[in-house]
Write a protein that binds this DNA or RNA. Structure first.
Lengths: 152, 152
DNA sequence: TTGCATCTTCAGAAATCTCTGAAGGTTCGA
DNA sequence: TCGAACCTTCAGAGATTTCTGAAGATGCAA
């Protein structure tokens, strides 16, 4: 286990634990910690010493999730990328997809076992909890967005 | 990709995506969907057709996280297990550890880059968001616990 | 204390995932 | 239209993770 002292690499490690591919996490961290406004794929590959293929895959993935965006770069043939405004809220919202899946899984389980069996009761507790989150989480994030927009 | 129609297996898949080991997820799902009040390690191994070693590891892990508990079993030599009350809230709370780490990572990044650089500004947005979650999430879960306790 | 049923640990086999590198595509300027 | 710079895709090597099975530990009954 390489003990990384570089803050960017350390963050990448955490993001990787959280489910991102390792290289994808490193690319995101690089974009977060760079002193430039944007980076090109080539710059990222060089900075991290990884193959252009890996960078390409990572950028595709991050763009898909909505964490970064392609920036039109006048006068250059290269694609420029940067982290999007509100990326972290987006990341959180995506993770909330899990909440939906959990709730639905519980619901289907209840449908399959009936509500009055031991399994049904356990599943109902699960369903109620995720249903609660499903109702409350969007509001929580919305409040963040509103607060931030207001105070800027 | 095996298309599982069994609700338990499908849930296990989701839990696995969420970071649990595959066998650990399957064991949790088995305990959730069983019609018995509790299950022994042997029963789980048989139900899932996996080695006793895997079951043992999974149970150890789930117990450690606080999702299941060992139930004293009078008149039996075997250990009995069941899902704990409030397991889902516990799972959620654990995942919030990530929030702390993210906030701290951002904080350290700012300390390293200074707050007035492009990187510093990006990191500040990140820090503010996770700090917000760090303040709000525990309250959200606490409210759930209170509501549930009240309505029962 | 002995024997039995059960659980735990762990080394290594097997499955899985990840990254690279090279070939091919795309876009832009001239 | 051509060439150069850059990006994307993908097969396969290599690294990593995961599961099993067997040996050993544990706890209970008699």
């Amino acid at each position: 286990m390489t003990a990384t002292s570089d803050p960017a690499e350390r963050l990448a490690l955490v993001l990787a634990e959280g489910g991102l591919q390792r290289m994808t996490a490193r690319v995101l961290a690089a974009l977060l910690f760079t002193e430039q406004e944007t980076m090109t794929a080539g710059e990222i590959a060089e900075a991290l010493t990884i193959s252009s293929g890996s960078v390409s895959t990572a950028l595709k993935s991050l763009t898909g999730i909505g964490l970064i965006e392609r920036v039109p770069a006048p006068g250059s043939r290269r694609e420029h990328f940067r982290i999007r405004e509100g990326a972290w809220a987006t990341l959180m919202s995506n993770q909330n997809a899990v909440v939906t899946v959990m709730r639905d899984a519980a619901e289907q389980g209840i449908a399959a076992t009936g509500p009055d069996s031991p399994a049904g009761r356990r599943l109902a507790e699960m369903r109620d909890f995720y249903d609660y989150l499903w109702r409350e989480m969007p509001a929580l994030i919305e409040r963040w967005r509103a607060d931030r927009a207001g105070s800027r």
